[in-house]
Design a protein around this nucleic acid. Structure first.
Lengths: 123, 123
DNA sequence: CGGCATCCCTGGTGATACTG
DNA sequence: CAGTATCACCAGGGATGCCG
């Protein structure tokens, strides 16, 4: 019985409360991770470069989000043992795959934002 | 000068703090809207049906998220003037377009969740 | 049935200061 | 440079009760 549970949630179960994908979805769609995916789309970036690239992010949230993305296997952290410290972040192959989906969503939004916001301005 | 501002943010500016797409992104990637997009993927659903379809959502958040999605033009609310009340929700054409992007992300997550979660279980 | 109003509390987030 | 630690705030979200 119990060994069947994992199979039960193999697909199409995001709508189920207990679907393990829910947790991942929550982190992937979190406020800053989407923007970090965009920033790392083509580049490997250092912490401070990321901070400048992602407008409005605080050090705290950038570090926290990067740690989560690293835990999820989307981001690789490369630390050079020098002074002053030098750390680079880049997307893993898994992260690159997901980035494709995230960018698809983001691009659609940027292209169509006027269709969304314009009607509201008239009201 | 000022009339140029809207053009400045026409594309590739999600990383900018002041990009108007930021607000839309926030609502689209909010906890429940993603799941509502999935639930309304193929069907028109009533409020109570949506409540059952989207596991774990409270009445309050379902109503609130639906209102936001309606304001953004993604969801159409159809109220029949009968007793007891009968209200249906369905995606607008705009919502259908966005749904394609959201579903792409969700499907990828469900298909690859094991590649994400499995490594952590070993640790 | 399909909500809205209210209370309440957790946790996500920002600001600041500090460290290796 | 690349973070961590601490504090404080308030929006997100759950629970409950009421209404057309």
């Amino acid at each position: 019985m119990s060994e069947k549970i994992s199979e039960k949630f193999s697909r199409g179960e995001l709508l189920n409360v207990n679907c393990p994908s829910r947790e991942v979805l929550k982190r992937v769609t979190s406020r800053w991770s989407v923007l970090i995916f965009l920033a790392l789309r083509h580049n490997t970036l250092r912490f401070s470069e990321l901070r400048r690239a992602v407008g409005g992010v605080s050090e705290r949230m950038l570090a926290q989000t990067l740690r989560h993305m690293e835990e999820d296997g989307f981001v690789e952290r490369i630390a050079y043992d020098v002074v002053p410290p030098h750390v680079e972040y880049r997307l893993t192959p898994l992260g690159q795959e997901l980035q494709g989906q995230v960018v698809g969503l983001a691009d659609w939004l940027e292209l169509n934002v006027n269709r969304i916001l314009a009607p509201r301005d008239k009201a």
